[in-house]
Simulated scan of single mutants.
Amino acid sequence: MFAVTGATGQLGRLVLAALLQRTAANQVVALVRDPAKAADLAGQGVAVRPFDYDAPERLVEPLAGVTRLLFISSDTPDQRIAQHRAVVDAAARAGVELIAYTSIIHADANPISLAESHRETERAIAASGVPYAILRNGWYNENYLIGAEAAIAHGALLGSTGDGGISGAARADYAEAAAVILTEPLAPNRVYELAGDEAFTLSDVAAALGEASGRTVEYRDLPESGYREALIGAGLPDGFAAALAEYSAKAAGGILADGSRTLSGLIGRPTETIRATVLRALVGASAAGAAR
């Protein structure tokens, strides 16, 4: 059986949809913190089981019968290492035959602070003895939809990435790759650097926002400290603003770019461009609103 942790999250739901295109619902397990949020999945015949990263003593039983596990990383980076070790330990004790883990692009060399917990998790998985597939996901194109309305309103997209390339792809592209890796007889103990086919810059994101809105939007590059202060001024908590500014500044070196095209090779089609993602989200939303 195939199981997905965080199955009601944005990535998890897309993975389940892709899995259900490849296998029967009775072969799929949705592991979720709150089963009430997965009633629709249960209605499709998917087994829904409680799975809370913060309850390590209750993680083994929900993995009963699971042979291949997609382990989606926790959304609480400050607690992630302890949570992830608990999941890896439970998978080993439950006899899971493959752990596929969603890591970060170029985790071994990535200077972004977020990468450290991913490196630690990769090490824990390798040490567990359970066969594995490390899915080093690049940035999601959808990350750049956050704050899009403000950028359009002010005619400026802010950041600290300069001309650094970002090989992003749509979240659905990464989800489909995860479903392929879970269901295909691929060799275990492999690391997949997953990224979009073509790198883009934040100037390209600004251009796409301008095209979608019919307004002029320019990219305005700021020092990391200046971007952090701008985010705080926009109402973000200090810690979150500092993290976003750090990610943006360290991406200036190109660590989020990757030309391997491993992702499109897995899914058998080109990845979605940043322009396509922005137009799909913003123009599509505008058309839907006009139709109501």
Rank of each mutant, 00 (worst) to 15 (best):
A30M: 00
P62M: 00
K250Y: 06
T23F: 07
E61A: 15
A172S: 04
A86W: 10
A86S: 15
F240W: 07
Y140T: 10
A115L: 03
E116W: 09
A179Q: 00
L182K: 08
A42F: 02
A91I: 08
A179W: 01
G43Y: 11
G284L: 08
A241I: 08
T273E: 11
A281L: 00
P185L: 02
I134K: 08
E272M: 10
G6T: 06
T5C: 02
A243L: 15
P131L: 12
N26H: 14
V29L: 06
S117A: 15
L70K: 01
I104P: 12
E198M: 00
Q44E: 15
A3T: 04
D75R: 09
V88A: 06
Y140V: 12
D173M: 02
R228W: 02
D258E: 08
T8W: 01
T277M: 03
A288S: 13
G164Y: 06
V15L: 12
L222Y: 09
V28S: 11
A55Q: 14
V60T: 13
E176N: 01
L186R: 11
Y192T: 00
A208R: 03
D197G: 13
V180K: 07
R85I: 08
F2P: 14
G289P: 00
S73E: 04
S73K: 07
A25R: 14
P77N: 02
A195N: 06
E61W: 01
L41M: 12
A169N: 11
N141A: 07
A175C: 00
K37S: 09
Q83G: 07
L70D: 01
R123H: 10
E224Y: 03
E229S: 14
E193Y: 01
I181G: 05
G254P: 09
R58K: 15
A7S: 14
L20I: 09
R58F: 06
D34I: 03
G284W: 07
T23Q: 12
I81C: 01
Y227M: 14
R93T: 13
I267G: 12
E176C: 00
G168P: 05
A242G: 07
R33Y: 00
Q27I: 06
D258Y: 09
G164V: 05
S213A: 14
V88I: 12
A82V: 14
V278F: 01
R136T: 03
G196V: 06
E224H: 03
R93Y: 03
R220W: 02
D34A: 12
S248P: 11
S203R: 15
A290D: 13
S113K: 12
A64S: 01
I99L: 10
F2Q: 15
R13M: 05
G65E: 07
A257H: 09
W139R: 05
I255A: 02
A169T: 11
